[in-house]
Design a protein around this nucleic acid. Structure first.
Ligand code: MN
Ligand code: MN
Ligand code: ZN
Ligand code: ZN
Lengths: 179, 179
DNA sequence: GGAAATTTTGAAAATGAATTTCATTTTCCT
DNA sequence: AGGAAAATGAAATTCATTTTCAAAATTTCC
């Protein structure tokens, strides 16, 4: 049986923490208890998670760690290339662990909010081609597909609103406050 | 010479204003001087423009029209399907006129900020295929290519920062406040 | 035309995520 | 240990967006 090479993104948590420490030293930054706790939790949790999410998780065991530090540590991870920021349609900044060579795009379920990742070389090539034909040199792209996952079905709930008559006005369309 | 059919998105401003009036009547809403001015300016300007932009343009001639009304009128245009909201990487909400059948994606220049549109049937099909293979039913997607346009070149300015020594620390990396 | 009903308007306030400030604490180096 | 630099956390700030509310405008109905 041939040895299967680990996918690029699968390096262990301790290796990533090592990389972070290297980064810190290189920039004259300091290792702290808080950073260690936050980074560990972040890498362990994985996924696409907000600073707030991580903060809440950590708060349970460590009431002394503030949101600001979580926020700053996530930014630090981005600078050190161990995480990326993602902003999907809900306009919240999410973070996900990242390995150097890793690239993928996302499918987002409008029903349950689940996020599925995909990679498609053909699409990447097509993007490059399109850009080239418009005289652009791309350095990044954003590709997100929104819809309903298998479990959530076709999303037929919440059909189009109908206009009302004068005496029977349409329900006031209140915006759910979801920033 | 064969008569060239107008592209779908090219219907005239007055036709669009007609559609809006129909929409207003249908929902028991009212026509106002402000709405007319705002919609006219918006349709005339076109492009990918923020509420603030439109407001500033209009203010010059009509100091009595408030930002709130511009904001609400643009939302109204979205509801009536005469405009769409777009949020690119700078996290500002932009509006663009839209015709029913119209769909396109965007190339955004990181140098000059120019926005180029493109349409690519192959990409649309590929997106559907990818979603299907993950069991998703897509209802929308976001596809943006970021890079440098022909005029702005390869974007070689602002290379990666180098770490500094202890006594010669790296310049404090202040975030430009570009929300 | 004119009153009543309903919607619209604009200023100001509220919202909320993201970011900065600042006084204090911690880490790192010798 | 001692001193310099960085990190921390609470609070304040920022800033686009959205809501509130009292006054004004539009539409409907007589
Ligand atoms: Mn991901
Ligand atoms: Mn466009
Ligand atoms: Zn789902
Ligand atoms: Zn450019």
């Amino acid at each position: 049986m041939p040895k299967r090479r680990k996918p690029a993104g699968a390096r262990g948590i301790s290796e990533k923490k090592e990389l972070l420490n290297t980064f810190l030293k290189e920039w004259g930054l300091k290792s702290t208890r808080q950073r260690d706790i936050i980074v560990t939790e972040f890498l362990k949790t994985g996924g696409h998670i907000t600073a707030e999410d991580i903060y809440r998780k950590i708060s349970k065991k460590h009431q002394d760690i503030g949101f600001t530090t979580v926020y700053r540590t996530l930014k630090l991870l981005v600078k050190s290339r161990l995480a990326t920021e993602r902003v999907f349609a809900d306009n919240l900044t999410r973070y996900e662990p990242l390995s150097a060579e890793d690239h993928h795009d996302h499918l987002i379920c409008l029903g349950c909010g689940s996020i599925t990742e995909f990679e498609n070389a053909r699409m990447e090539r097509l993007q490059e081609k399109i850009a080239r034909e418009s005289g652009f040199n791309t350095v990044a792209h954003k590709m997100e597909l929104y819809g309903y996952c298998g479990r959530c079905g076709s999303g037929s709930r919440g059909g189009k609103k109908q206009p009302g008559t004068k005496k029977n006005a349409p329900a006031p369309q209140k915006n759910r406050n979801n920033r």
